[in-house]
């Protein structure tokens, strides 16, 4: 925070500014999210099989794969929305224990954007953005509004702040959802198919915001079918099928020369 109560995102280089904004974070956490030997069952259905995945701080990882491959389940495990039966998840070095208080604390540092936006329909755009700032971080109203305006500008819709979600287009709603998550100044952003329920003409405005975020150095874990985004913004592409990680590669390798047959088949379908 600088003297006028505004975050200094635009002027200071990330992540230096993060440590000012959130001095509570010890600076030595180099891995934002780490899953080790993760296993999950839905009843008798083995949804995640021995998943090992590390998301280093500052990296952008895209997870893709056919529907039912477990990619959404995996990303939902990363902030405790799903429980798991085997293995560990570490967030910023701290292992998820399933303890409610710990979860609440960890979730403050993990932003999440959902396929269905999940904006709160009874609250204005502004109130959507300020709710957690006020209730979770205990900010004053004016401080919270200042932060919200900043991030709404960042997703390029400050003029919609007084509207209700239902008055916005899908693309605008999703950008608000991104701003809402950013307001908490998360150390990592999780995106769960953020463009999948958008009309085609609105996909770009959301992807542009995400590409901006990536360019600013935000740590991102994205489940998406947008191969263009993966090519442009990702450091690593993870391909999942039937609950397993089949292949992990840099975008260049992943698209040009995937090593697995299943990956090739999937890419063939996606890129046709």
């Amino acid at each position: 925070m600088n003297s006028d109560g505004q975050p200094m995102r635009q002027t200071a280089p990330w992540p230096v500014e993060i440590s000012q904004h959130h001095s509570a974070h010890p600076p030595d956490r180099t891995v934002a999210v780490e899953a080790a030997a993760l296993n999950k069952w839905f009843g008798s259905f083995h949804a995640l099989k021995d998943i090992n995945l590390a998301v280093p701080q500052g990296s952008r990882i895209v997870i893709c794969g056919p529907s039912g491959s477990g990619k959404s389940t995996l990303i939902r495990c990363a902030n405790g929305l799903e429980t798991f039966q085997g293995g560990t998840i570490r967030i910023g070095g701290a292992e998820l224990t399933g303890d409610e208080k710990q979860l609440q604390k960890i979730r403050r540092t993990v932003g999440m954007v959902f396929q269905q936006f999940n904006l709160f329909p009874h609250l204005t755009v502004m109130a959507n953005c300020t709710l957690a700032l006020r209730r979770v971080l205990g900010k004053s109203r004016s401080e919270a509004v200042g932060i919200a305006v900043h991030y709404l500008e960042r997703v390029r819709i400050p003029e919609q702040a007084h509207k209700y979600p239902a008055q916005l287009s899908g693309g605008q709603q999703q950008r608000v959802a991104i701003a809402r998550a950013l307001c908490m100044n998360p150390r990592i952003m999780l995106f769960d198919e953020p463009t999948s329920s958008l009309d085609p003409e609105m996909v770009k405005e959301v992807l542009d915001v995400m590409i901006d975020l990536a360019a600013d150095g935000m740590t991102m874990l994205c489940v998406t079918h947008e191969m263009g985004f993966a090519r442009e913004a990702a450091d690593q592409v993870v391909f999942m099928d039937q609950g397993r990680i089949v292949e992990t590669a840099s975008p260049a390798t992943f698209f040009a020369a995937p090593s697995q047959e299943r990956t090739r088949l999937f890419l063939n379908k996606m890129l046709r």
Partner: peptide, 21 residues
Amino acid sequence: PKGQAEAAKALGLNRIDVVSF
């Protein structure tokens, strides 16, 4: 929708705040 509680939890709200807000 189920996503409402999930989104609220994902923001770090506690149980009471999820319900009341």
